[in-house]
């Protein structure tokens, strides 16, 4: 286990109120609190746990996105990653373009990946595509929604969560791509010395054209961003008085059958 690459994305905080742009091209991104995509934190943490066991291992964080608000790469390096790559892109790009850019960036680093880690999904576009797409483009195997991770030499043992909470067990040789889920580990906080050190760690910066991406790589176009239709206000019943609760609940159950017709 020598070279680990971790894919990170910067996304609006989960409590952000999303406002579509007037022209519907995307959403307003000024005055937003940005965070590292929560699932990516598990990927960064996992890389650092492996680095503890294999000290010769180099951890590179890779991000495709705008140059401004580049905090999450520094955060990952403050947590303990060794270096970072930023591929600059403006506005919204699709998953295919992103995966191809990451592949180009990894190749440009000159290091052959033993392991590529990412979050299972980014909570902005919720596409759940990039890790498996990247694996396909690089002809590597991938395992997604991973909640258990063990490394023994070159062999990686993984637990993948599927429908209804069942777990699939995988055991395979590196190199591979792993997309991490919540519950895999507990991400650490960056320490103050870590934050100071991170400022001096190398950050390579490329344009999309430097990593072999062109406009023809766009396979999916998103537009017409709008808020979902608001539901009309529903019915509200006060059942704090125990004496009335029985009758009210009976009424609601009746409404579910006769008015809403869902039961």
């Amino acid at each position: 286990m020598k070279n680990i690459f971790v894919l990170v994305k910067q996304v609006p905080d989960t409590e952000t109120k999303i406002i579509p742009k007037a022209d519907g091209s995307y959403v307003e991104v000024t005055n937003i609190k940005w965070i590292m995509n929560p699932y990516d934190e598990f990927a960064v943490e996992q890389s650092l746990l492996i680095k503890t066991a294999f000290p010769e291992c180099n951890v590179t964080v890779v991000r495709v996105g705008t140059v401004s608000d580049n905090e999450c790469l520094r955060t990952a390096m403050a947590m303990g990653a060794d270096d970072a790559i930023l591929v600059e892109s403006e506005g919204l790009i699709d998953s295919f373009t992103t995966a191809k850019a990451i592949k180009g960036a990894i190749e440009k680093s000159g290091r052959t990946p033993d392991l590529i880690l990412s979050g299972k999904q980014a909570i902005d576009d919720d596409a759940l595509q990039v890790p498996q797409l990247l694996a396909g483009l690089m002809n590597l195997p991938s395992v997604s929604v991973v909640v258990g991770f063990e490394v023994a030499g070159n062999v990686v043992k993984l637990k993948r969560e599927v429908e209804g909470g069942s777990i699939e067990i995988y055991e395979l040789n590196a190199p591979l791509v792993v997309a991490c889920n919540k519950g895999l580990n507990t991400p650490r906080y960056a320490s103050l010395p870590g934050i100071m050190k991170a400022k001096k760690k190398p950050l390579a910066q490329y344009k999309l054209s430097d990593v072999g991406v062109s406009a023809s790589d766009t396979k999916v176009k998103y537009h017409g961003f709008q808020l979902p239709p608001e539901k009309p206000a529903g019915k509200k019943f006060d059942a704090m008085d125990d004496a009335k609760a029985g009758a009210i609940v009976k009424d609601v159950v009746g409404l579910l059958r006769n008015e809403a017709k869902v039961i």
Binding site: V27, V220, K221, Y222, H223, G224, L227
Partner: peptide, 16 residues
């Protein structure tokens, strides 16, 4: 399709 877990919706068109 939804973005931001459904906080907003977007139109999607396939290219190429």
């Amino acid at each position: 399709r939804p973005f931001f877990a459904g906080k907003c919706l977007a139109k999607v068109e396939m290219q190429g």
